[in-house]
Amino acid sequence: MAHESTSANPKVNYEYRRRKARDEMRGQVTSFAMMIFMTFIAFIIVIADFDKFYAFPVLLVLAAAQVVLQLYYFMHMSHKGHGTAALFLYSGALIAFVTILTFLTIVWW
């Protein structure tokens, strides 16, 4: 079957794949460290008691950055073959954004 080996020399293919997987895992551990770091910053912002005018945008940007790392590295959206997955998720995110915007603006009009 064609999918079992993509190289004429399975040993080379195997070692190449192992190395690729290891590199990817290293990238994922780095993303994890960044996510932990951003979580710390977010909690420090709240402890430092900044004015919400400054705190809210920073907190939201930190959350968005963490979610991007989670989606693209932990959930592999950076790999090819995720076009339809991205279409589904971003369609959902668009509806999500409009829903939240609506509730925040016209519920207590």
């Binding site: 339809t84 589904f88 939240i100």
Partner: peptide, 25 residues
Amino acid sequence: KFLGFWLFLGGETVLFASLFATYLA
């Protein structure tokens, strides 16, 4: 499964958005 699951996650996003919107209001 892969494709269907991402469609489901898109739906889950909308579900949680409605709950977030309600909470914020």
